[in-house]
Simulated assay, not measured.
Amino acid sequence: MKKQFGSLNDSTIFAFQFFTKGGILIMLIIDSKDCENIDKALKKYKKKFEKSKTLLQLRERQTFTKPSVVRRGQVLKAIYKQQLASGKIEG
């Protein structure tokens, strides 16, 4: 994974993420105020990167999961949520 940082002007910091596996190219733009330092901008970048769920997608693509296994997991999760809602299971 290679990261590049640069600035368009004084108030915007942009970052590119390059992933070699899967050919994913992601660009996150972080707007920063003139009074902010680079630490706050990096904190915003990390939060935005986490919300984009790019790392989760990358990990999912590393291994193949059969569609029947994915569907079974979804059904079990739905059953669990239904039991929580009805009060049969205490969370």
Score class of each variant (00 low, 15 high):
Met1His: 03
Lys2Trp: 04
Lys3Tyr: 13
Gln4Phe: 11
Gln4Val: 14
Phe5Trp: 10
Phe5His: 06
Leu8Lys: 14
Leu8Arg: 15
Asn9Arg: 02
Ser11Gln: 12
Ser11Met: 10
Thr12Met: 12
Phe14Asp: 06
Phe14His: 02
Ala15Asp: 02
Phe16Glu: 15
Gln17Trp: 12
Gln17Lys: 12
Gln17Tyr: 15
Gln17Ala: 12
Phe18Pro: 02
Phe19Thr: 09
Phe19Cys: 11
Thr20Gln: 01
Lys21His: 05
Lys21Cys: 04
Lys21Asn: 01
Gly22Val: 00
Gly22Phe: 01
Gly23Phe: 00
Ile24Gln: 01
Ile24Asn: 03
Ile26Ala: 03
Ile26Ser: 06
Ile26Asn: 06
Met27Val: 07
Ile29Ala: 07
Ile29Trp: 05
Ile29Ser: 13
Ile30Glu: 15
Ile30Cys: 13
Asp31Asn: 15
Lys33Asn: 13
Cys35Ala: 15
Cys35Arg: 12
Asn37Gln: 05
Asn37Thr: 09
Lys40Ala: 14
Lys40His: 13
Leu42Asp: 02
Tyr45Ile: 03
Lys47Pro: 09
Lys48Gln: 13
Lys48Pro: 03
Phe49Lys: 07
Lys51Leu: 03
Lys51Met: 03
Lys53Trp: 01
Lys53Arg: 07
Lys53Leu: 11
Thr54Tyr: 04
Leu55Trp: 03
Leu55Gly: 01
Leu56Thr: 08
Gln57Arg: 15
Leu58Asn: 10
Glu60Thr: 08
Arg61His: 07
Gln62Lys: 12
Thr65Gly: 00
Thr65Ile: 06
Thr65Val: 07
Pro67Thr: 00
Pro67Lys: 04
Val69Gly: 07
Val69Met: 07
Val69Ser: 14
Val70Phe: 01
Arg71Thr: 07
Arg72Ala: 08
Arg72Lys: 15
Gln74Ile: 09
Gln74Thr: 04
Val75Cys: 03
Leu76Met: 09
Ala78Arg: 04
Tyr80Arg: 10
Lys81Pro: 00
Gln82Val: 04
Leu84Asn: 05
Leu84Glu: 13
Gly87Tyr: 03
Lys88Asn: 08
Lys88Pro: 02
Ile89Ser: 05
Glu90Gly: 02
Glu90Arg: 09
Gly91Lys: 15
Gly91Ala: 14
